[in-house]
Computed example of a mutant assay.
Amino acid sequence: QITDEACKLHLEDSDSIEEHIHIIIAGSVEDFPEDDTSDSAAKFAAQIARASITDKTRSNHVRIIKAYIRYHLRRNPKWNAKEVTVQTPQDINMFITQKCGPAADGFEGRKYSTAVSTRAALTLWYRTIRPNESIVEWRMEEDTKAWRGLPTRSPEVSRFMIGLEKTKAKAGEVSQSARALSLQDMHRLHDLCLDPKASIAEQRAGIIRYTAYLLAWLMMLRIEEVVRPQFSSVDMIPGEREYVEISLITRKSAQTGVTHSWRLYANDLDPKICPVRALIRLAMTYGDNVRLSGPLFLRVNAAGAINQAQPIVSSSGSPSSFG
C-alpha cells in the first residue's frame, strides 16, 4: 500500500509539473499572435516576425525548453523558470551536462551538437521572457544587483561549451580535424569523382556528384542547399558570356527568399574548378533524353541510366547520396 501510494503521489507530481510547464510555455513562447486581419500592416509585420525562425526549428526549440524546465522543476519544485539570477548560467550548464555528460557517469551521453541546439533553444527562451534585454552581454547592474542580458551569453556558459567540446573531442566524439575544403581538396575530389578507369555508371554519378560539390564550394552553400536548384535556376548563354548565373528560391539563412544570384565565371587557369565546364559535363551526361525541368541533380541507376523520376532533393552529405 505504501508503494502504491508513493507511485500515485509521483504520478500526481509529474502531472502537476507537466501542467505547470504547459502554462509557462503557452504564456511566454507564443510570441507571434494571430494576425490582425483588420490591419494589413500588422498582418504583414506578423508574417515577417514569424519568418525569422522556421516552424520546425521553433518546434524543436520549444521541445528543448520544456525538457529544461521539467528537469529543474523535478530537482526543485520551487524553481522559477522565468527568474534570471546569477545562478541561471549554472542552471543551463547543469541541464546540458545531464544531456551530454558521459553515460558511464549516469548522464545521457548525447553528442556535442545537442549542447549547441540546447544553448540555441535556451537563448530563444530567455530572449522571449526578457525581450528588452541586450542579446550580446551578461552583466550585473551595480545599483539594483539585477542581472542583465542573456545568461546563455555568459562567460560561465561560454567556457563550459568550450570545455565540453574539448572533452568530447578527446573522447573521439567530435572531429578534431574538421576544416573547410581547400583548393587541393577540390583537386583531389575532382580526380576521385572523374576517374576515367571507373565504370560508366560510376563516371556519370561522379560527374553529378562533383558538380554539386563544386557549386557548394564556390557558392558557400550547404549540401542540402546545393541540391535545391532547378534547371530553371541556371541561366547560361554559351558563346555570349563567360559566366553562368545561378539563383535559389530559399536557403537556411534566407527563409523568405534569396534576393541575389551567383555569377560563376569560367576558369581557364584551373579547369578542375571551372563551374562552366562542370555544368557542360553535366549537360552532356544528361543528354537529350532528360527534360530541362525540375530538380537539377538527378540520380544514376546501377546500369548508368539517368533517372529523372528520382531527383536528388536532399542529402546526408555522404557521396553515396549522389549515387
Rank of each mutant, 00 (worst) to 15 (best):
M161V: 02
D143Q: 11
K66H: 05
V174R: 13
I135Q: 15
A120F: 05
V234L: 06
E142W: 07
M220K: 10
G294V: 03
L221S: 06
S158G: 12
I92A: 08
M236K: 10
I69F: 05
P131K: 14
R179Y: 01
Q255F: 03
V226G: 03
K43R: 13
R263V: 00
A121P: 02
E202N: 05
T259F: 03
D4C: 02
L214M: 06
F95K: 00
S233E: 08
P196S: 07
M220V: 14
E225H: 03
V62Q: 14
P151G: 09
Q255L: 14
I135S: 15
S318K: 15
S134F: 07
D36N: 15
S232Y: 03
K8Q: 09
K78M: 12
L214F: 02
S182R: 05
G206N: 07
T167R: 11
A309G: 15
A305F: 07
W147I: 04
K78L: 15
E34D: 13
D185S: 13
S316R: 08
I207D: 02
D270H: 07
D13M: 07
T285V: 12
P271M: 15
V62W: 04
E240P: 01
E142H: 08
W147S: 09
S177Y: 11
V234A: 04
E34F: 09
A283G: 05
Q90D: 11
F297E: 01
T54M: 07
D55M: 07
E18D: 09
D270Q: 08
V136I: 11
D195S: 09
H22E: 13
A205V: 02
T167C: 06
I23G: 00
V86E: 14
M236I: 04
I162N: 13
W262N: 07
I21D: 07
L183F: 12
K111L: 15
V157D: 00
R277N: 07
L11K: 09
Q310M: 09
Y112P: 02
E240Y: 01
A45N: 02
V227A: 11
F160E: 04
S314A: 15
A67P: 01
I48R: 15
T152Y: 02
S52N: 14
S154K: 07
L164H: 11
R263G: 00
N60R: 13
N60P: 01
H190P: 04
T88Q: 04
R139G: 04
E83F: 03
T259M: 10
R75F: 11
A305D: 15
N76Y: 03
K166P: 02
I48M: 12
G101W: 04
S134T: 10
A303W: 05
M161Q: 11
D36L: 08
R74A: 05
R241T: 09
E141G: 08
F160W: 09
A283T: 10
T97D: 15
D288N: 12
R159S: 13
L269N: 09
T3C: 04
A41L: 11
